[in-house]
Amino acid sequence: MTGVLDLQKNLYRVADLTVEMETFGRTLAQAQPYRTDSSSPADIVIRSAWQGLKEKQPHLSPEECEYLTTGWSFYNQLLDFDGMMLHASAVVMDGRAYLFSAPCGTGKSTHTSIWQRVFGDKVIMLNDDKPALRRIDGTWYAYGTPWSGKYDYNTNMRAPIAGICLLARGTVNKIAPFGGVPAVCALMEQTSRSRNGGPNWAKIAAQLDVLMRDVPVWLMECNMDDEAAILSHKVMSGKAE
């Protein structure tokens, strides 16, 4: 690493919260669309803290460490504002958000890219990896955030959540309501990807308890055909019989 990192402290508006963040590099660049001139006091304060992670994970670059640690800081603090993170690829269509969650490598982004292929410009990529979820006046919204995974696939907007779908690979497409212990376990495991710094599991459990009462949860086996997107959209939007 050469020289001093060019840290910049700015105010941002993320998930309807005012965020003061001091950061650099890719995190600074991805946060640019979220800049605000608001003079309201910060709800969430994020300090540059990449060094701690770099010591534990020397193979990561300072930029990558910064991106991960600022994200963990944001999503941990979000738990104090009727909110939580879900590891999901989230798209918006006709004003509502559709969240597809699964362990890494299952094909979340692949499924939402099929949505984009099938429905074209009607589909907005809200957040390809870690949407923020918040309950505001009784409605759960999904938000774009600067933390959206490997690529900068996010849009600074919010939309009420139509449904959350856990994905599994299959040869045929089928989708059904998902509940009980398996659904709770699957969602708990996708509510924090943090392995450093530690999530607050009791707070996550409390948020998830409310979320699962309010928002329909589905389990889908899917392949990569157009039919996969047509089926998940039809069922989750309530347009099925």
Binding site: G179, G180, M188, W201, A202, A205
Partner: peptide, 12 residues
């Protein structure tokens, strides 16, 4: 913790 009718053991 009770989550949507299931009892989950979580670390504090």
């Amino acid at each position: 913790r009770e989550v949507a009718g299931s009892t989950v053991v979580v670390p504090t």
